[in-house]
Simulated scan of single mutants.
Amino acid sequence: MTTLTPRVHDADGSRLVAYDLGATLAEWDLDGEPVLWLSDRAVLDGSAPLRGGIPICFPWFAAGPEGDRSPSHGLVRTATWRSAEPADEEVWAWEVGSADVSGAERLTGPFELRYAVGLRPGREAMGRELLVALAVTNPADAPLTVEAALHTYLAVEDVRATRVLGLDGVEYYDKVDGVRRVQRGPLTFTGETDRVYDSGAEAGIVVDDGSRQLHLRPAGATQAVVWNPWAERCAEVADLADDAWQRFVCVETAATAHRSLTVPPGGTSTLSCTFAARPRSTT
């Protein structure tokens, strides 16, 4: 059985682990503590997307706008991306195009993707800040409309004691019960959660688990997706331990459905997010 070969980078208290499969950043540890969460049952033989880290969803999210696309979350999570030359603060960069992915051009039209992972000096953060960016280029003569998401798994001590701030007043679609609502106050977790917020949240999102705060600064997004499967759904997923739902929450930088990306001919659109971990404020 094949085992994927990891890329590893250690610098200034940060440890990054990534794989060319899906250009997946699987781990980010800061001062020995995980910021990104990776399942201890993650499949590392190339037969399935990695469960954890930051998988890339493209050119559709879930089953697509009409609910008829397969595999879930698109075609590039299981493609082997080519290494590209990093620039500036980038640690790694990858590229992949529609010509590299069977059936992609027929389903969406041609595209070229570049994904980069970088570290920058932390301002108030411990160690450094993490930056991830997905650039979508349209080489065709017609507009390209696609869904995209950075499906980020964040490590928390206990999701039941976790709050997500920065989405107050934002309308969202609750995929659990099919109802549209408006967020009032911080988001807390009491059961299965699968919400698509109609905001790019460029003012920032804070995930507070009671011991630290994870600060997210998305850019280029039209939505934020928040997901946790809770106990019953978690037990149905082979690459999740039955109690794994307690230790992560997904907060995703996204553009889906009626807020998909439309990239003009010859143009490029970029979805990115910067992450920092800070001790919880006592004030």
Rank of each mutant, 00 (worst) to 15 (best):
Gly52Glu: 03
Thr188Ser: 11
Ala148Gly: 07
Val249Trp: 02
Lys175Phe: 09
Thr274Pro: 11
Ala79Gln: 03
Cys57Asn: 05
Thr108Gln: 02
Pro65Val: 08
Thr78Cys: 11
Gly97Trp: 03
Val132Glu: 02
Asp68Phe: 00
Pro110Glu: 07
Tyr19Met: 03
Glu27Phe: 01
Leu165Glu: 14
Gly109Leu: 04
Pro49Gln: 01
Arg106Lys: 07
Pro139Ser: 04
Gly32Lys: 04
Val156Met: 08
Phe248Leu: 06
Thr190Gln: 05
Val35Met: 01
Thr193Trp: 01
Leu134Gly: 11
Glu171Gly: 15
Thr3Leu: 09
Gly46Ile: 00
Ser260Met: 10
Ala135Gly: 07
Pro264Trp: 02
Gly204Cys: 07
Glu232Asn: 10
Ala254Tyr: 02
Arg184Val: 15
Asp243Phe: 05
Val96Asp: 03
Glu129Leu: 02
Glu27Pro: 07
Arg41Ser: 10
Leu216Glu: 04
Ser98Arg: 05
Ser70Tyr: 05
Val132Ser: 05
Pro59Gln: 07
Tyr153Cys: 06
Gly200Glu: 08
Ser272Leu: 10
Ser211Phe: 04
Glu202Ser: 10
Leu107Glu: 15
Val179Lys: 09
Ser102His: 14
Leu154Ser: 00
Leu131Cys: 12
Thr2Glu: 13
Tyr173Asn: 11
Pro229Val: 00
Gly67Cys: 02
Trp37Arg: 02
Glu89Ser: 15
Pro139Glu: 06
Gly13His: 08
Leu44Glu: 14
Trp92Met: 09
Leu36Gln: 00
Ile205Asn: 01
Ala142His: 10
Ser211Gly: 13
Ala142Asn: 09
Arg123Trp: 03
Phe248Tyr: 12
Thr80Tyr: 08
Gly266Phe: 02
Pro264Ala: 06
Gly13Arg: 04
Leu150Pro: 13
Ala231Asn: 15
Arg181Ile: 14
Val132Asp: 00
Ala48Arg: 12
Gln183Cys: 08
Glu129Gly: 08
Pro71Ala: 04
Thr274His: 05
Gly52Ile: 00
Ser70Thr: 15
Leu144Val: 14
Ser269Asn: 10
Trp94Leu: 02
Ala219Thr: 11
Glu157Met: 08
Tyr153Ile: 03
Ser47Glu: 10
Cys250Pro: 10
Thr270Phe: 07
Ala104Val: 12
Ala11Pro: 11
Val156Ile: 12
